[in-house]
Design a protein around this nucleic acid. Structure first.
Length: 636
DNA sequence: GTAGGGTTAG
C-alpha cells in the first residue's frame, strides 16, 4: 500500500534531473554521496526543493520516513502544497495532526504569530481534525495577537469537538477572553466551570489585578482552595501595579511564613514595592537573597534592583549593580540615566547616554525622558533643546506629551517663560494639566503673576481638582503680597471641594517606619524632638540660618509663622533621625510632596553642623545634603 | 498544551 502511494506520489513529482544545483551536488552519484545523510535531507527550504528530495528518494527506492517531518510541515504549511505534505504523512502512516501541531506551536511562539492563525485555517481547509493540542496552540496565538474573533472560532471548535471538559483548554479560554478585553465573558466562564484548578484561579487573579480590580483579585485570592507560588506572586504583583506597595510587602511576608520561596518574578515584584516605599532594608535583604539564589544573571531582577537602589537614594549601590551586569537592555540604561537625573547628576547622565550610544544600543522614548529630565533638573537648556531635536531627527522617535512636558519644565524653570509659553501653544498635541502645571511652577520661580494666571485659566479646565496648582497660585499671590487674591484662590479651592494633600515625611529606624505630619505631636518622642530642635536652631542661626517665613501661606504674625515653619514634617523626621541614629550615619527621609524651601535651607546648615549626609526623596527627585550643600545645587 | 516580571514628565 505504502509502495503504491509512493509511486502515485512520484508521478506528480518533477524529474530529479531538475534538482537545484546545490541538491544535485549532494545527490549526484559521481560525487559518491548517493546515500543521503540527515544533513542533506534537511537541506530543503521550499516546497520545490522538497519535491526534488522526495523524487530522489522514490526513484532510488528509499523510504520517505527518512524525511524530517517537522521540516516538511513547516515548508508546506503556509503554501498551496499543504496537501503534498499530507500525502507524505499518509505514505508513512504518520498521524499528521501531531506534525502540524508542532509546526503550529513554533509559529505561535515565534515572532510571526499571524502565520499560526493562517496555518490553523489551512488545517481546517484541508480537513485536518484539530485535537486538544491544536486548539491550545491556536488559542495561544489568538491571545498573543489579541484576536478575539479568531479566538471565538477556536472556542466554537472546542465546543463542537467535545473538548470543553478539558481544563487546560478552559483555562486558555479564560485567559483569551480576559486579555482581549472581555473580562465579563471570562468571569462568566470561570463561574460556570464545573471544576477549576490553581491555574484557573491564578489567571483570574492576574487579569482582575491588571484591569485595576484589585479588590476583586484579592477576594478570589482569599477564597481559592489552594495557592502556589504563582498565586502569591500574581497577587503581590497586582498590589504593586495598583500602587499598593505596603499591601504587596505585607503579603510577601505572609508568603514567606508559609515556607514558599520567592522566584525571580516574585523578587521583581517585591523589589518594585521596595522602590515605591523607599524600603531600603527589605530591598537589601532581597538583593542578598537574589544573589544567593542565583538570580544575578536575570536581567529583570537586575534592572529592578537598579531602580530600587535609585529610588531608595543609594546611587552608588545602583551603579554597582549596573556595572556588574553582563548584559544590559535599553531598560537598564534608561533606568540608570533616569536615576542619575533624579539625583541631579546631569553630567554623568549625559555621559552615560553617550556611552550607551557607543555600545550601539538604540535609545527609546523612555531613555529620552531620562535625558531630558537630567537637562531640566540642572538647567541645561541648550543641551535639552538639542536632545529634543535629536530624538526625531536621529532616532525617528516622535515626542510624546511627556517629552513636551520635560521641555516646558526645562524652559520655565530656566526662566524662559515666554519661550515656554510659545512652545506650549505651538505643540502639535494639546497641552494637558501637567504641561500647564510645569509652566505654573516656572511662573512661581520667576514671580510672574500674569503668566501664572494664564496657566491657571487652563488648569481650571484641564485639572480643576488638583490641589497643588491652587497652592502654588496662592503662593505666588502671597509672595506678591496680594493677600486678597491669595485668599480668593483658597476660597475657590474650598468651593470646588478640593482638599490640600496633607504633607508627610517618613524615616525608617531599625526597620520601623516613622511618619510625621506638620505640627505632629502624636509621636511618643514628640517632646524630645521639639527640645532637640530648639537646641539645634540656636546653632543653625549662629551659622547664618534665617527662617524663610514667606513659604508659610497663612496670613499671621511673623513669630507664629516661624513656629509653623519649625514643625514641618521633614524637619521633625530629620531631628528624630539625628536622635536615633549613630553619629556619621546617613539619614534618609521621604516626603510625599516637594521639599519646602525653608527646610531645604535648614537641611544644608544641619548637614554641616551635624556632620551628616542627609538624603531626602521628595515627589520629584533626590536632595543629598552634605557639608552645607545640596546635590541639586539649589536648582529644583 | 493553560497563568507571571523591568525604565516613564511635575
Amino acid at each position: 500500500m505504502a509502495m503504491l502511494q509512493s509511486v502515485c506520489l512520484a508521478s506528480s513529482l518533477p524529474n530529479h534531473t531538475f534538482l537545484s544545483p546545490q541538491l544535485k551536488r549532494s545527490f549526484d552519484p559521481k560525487n559518491n554521496v548517493q546515500i543521503p545523510t540527515s544533513e542533506t535531507l534537511y537541506n530543503f527550504n521550499s516546497p520545490f526543493e522538497l519535491k526534488q528530495v522526495v523524487a530522489f528518494l522514490v526513484k532510488t527506492n528509499r523510504p520517505l520516513s527518512l524525511l524530517p517531518l517537522s521540516r516538511v510541515a513547516s515548508v508546506c504549511a503556509l503554501t498551496p502544497t499543504f496537501p503534498f505534505a499530507q500525502q507524505i504523512f499518509n505514505c508513512i502512516e504518520q498521524s499528521e495532526v501531531s506534525v502540524w501541531n508542532s509546526c503550529l506551536r513554533n509559529l505561535a511562539e515565534g515572532n510571526c504569530v499571524t502565520n499560526a492563525i493562517f496555518l490553523f485555517h489551512q488545517m481546517r481547509i484541508y480537513n485536518v481534525v484539530p485535537d486538544i493540542f491544536t486548539c491550545s496552540f491556536a488559542l495561544k496565538a489568538c491571545v498573543k495577537l489579541l484576536d478575539l474573533s479568531c479566538g471565538k472560532i477556536v472556542h466554537a471548535y472546542i465546543e463542537k469537538l467535545g473538548f470543553l471538559s478539558n481544563l487546560v483548554l478552559l483555562n486558555a479560554l479564560l485567559h483569551l477572553y480576559a486579555t482581549c478585553g472581555a473580562m465579563a465573558d471570562s468571569m462568566l466562564l470561570f463561574d460556570k466551570m464545573p471544576q477549576r484548578d490553581v491555574v484557573s484561579w491564578n489567571i483570574m487573579i492576574t487579569q482582575l489585578a491588571k484591569k485595576g480590580d484589585i479588590d476583586g483579585a484579592f477576594e478570589l485570592f482569599s477564597k481559592m482552595p489552594e495557592r502556589n507560588l504563582r498565586s502569591w506572586t500574581a497577587m503581590i504583583t497586582g498590589f504593586v501595579h495598583c500602587g499598593k506597595a505596603k499591601e504587596a510587602i505585607r503579603l510577601f511576608t505572609e508568603m514567606e511564613e508559609t515556607g514558599l520561596r520567592a522566584n525571580e518574578v516574585t523578587v521583581v515584584a517585591v523589589l518594585a514595592a521596595c522602590a515605591d516605599l523607599g524600603a531600603l532594608q527589605l530591598g537589601r535583604r532581597i538583593h542578598e537573597y537574589s544573589n544567593k539564589s542565583g538570580f544575578k544573571r536575570n536581567i529583570h531582577v537586575c534592572n529592578t534592583l537598579v531602580d530600587m537602589y535609585i529610588k531608595c537614594g543609594c546611587l552608588e549601590a545602583a551603579k554597582a549593580v549596573f556595572e556588574e551586569m553582563k548584559e544590559r537592555t535599553i531598560v537598564s540604561w534608561s533606568a540608570m540615566i533616569q536615576g542619575l537625573a533624579m539625583h541631579g547628576q546631569a553630567d554623568e547622565a549625559l555621559e552615560l547616554f553617550n556611552n550607551m550610544i557607543q555600545t550601539g544600543m538604540k535609545p527609546n522614548e523612555v531613555t529620552f525622558l531620562g535625558v531630558l529630565h537630567a537637562c531640566s533638573h540642572m538647567g541645561l537648556v541648550n543641551e535639552g533643546r538639542e536632545f529634543f531635536a535629536s530624538m526625531t531627527r536621529d532616532y525617528n522617535i516622535t515626542p510624546q506629551i511627556e517629552h513636551y512636558g520635560c521641555m516646558v519644565d526645562l524652559l520655565s524653570r530656566a526662566g524662559l517663560l515666554k519661550e515656554a509659553y510659545e512652545f506650549i501653544v505651538s505643540m502639535p498635541i494639546n497641552a494637558n494639566g501637567v504641561i500647564w502645571g510645569s509652566f505654573l511652577g516656572g511662573c512661581r520661580i520667576q514671580k510672574d503673576v500674569d503668566m501664572a494666571e494664564e496657566a491657571m485659566r487652563h488648569l481650571g479646565i484641564l485639572d480643576p481638582l488638583n490641589d497643588g496648582y491652587y497652592i502654588i497660585m496662592s503662593n505666588i499671590y502671597a509672595e506678591a503680597k496680594r493677600w486678597e487674591d491669595a485668599a480668593r484662590v483658597r476660597k475657590l479651592m474650598k468651593d470646588r471641594g478640593v482638599k490640600k494633600t496633607p504633607g508627610w515625611s517618613s524615616i525608617t529606624i531599625a526597620g520601623v517606619m516613622h511618619e510625621f505630619v506638620a505640627g505632629d505631636d502624636n509621636h511618643p518622642q514628640a517632646e524630645e524632638i521639639f527640645e532637640r530642635w530648639d537646641k539645634l536652631l540656636e546653632r543653625m542661626k549662629f551659622k547664618g540660618y534665617v527662617p524663610n517665613t514667606s513659604v508659610v501661606l497663612l496670613d499671621m504674625e511673623e513669630n507664629e509663622k516661624e513656629k509653623y515653619l519649625y514643625r514641618h514634617s521633614e524637619k521633625l523626621a530629620l531631628v528624630f533621625g539625628l536622635m536615633t541614629t549613630k553619629p556619621g550615619e546617613t539619614i534618609r527621609i521621604m516626603k510625599n510632596l516637594r521639599v519646602c524651601e525653608d527646610c531645604h535651607a535648614a537641611f544644608k546648615v544641619i548637614s554641616e553642623i551635624a556632620k551628616r549626609e542627609i538624603v531626602v526623596r521628595d515627589r520629584n527627585r533626590f536632595h543629598c545634603f552634605k557639608d552645607g550643600l545640596c546635590s541639586c545645587k539649589d536648582y529644583w
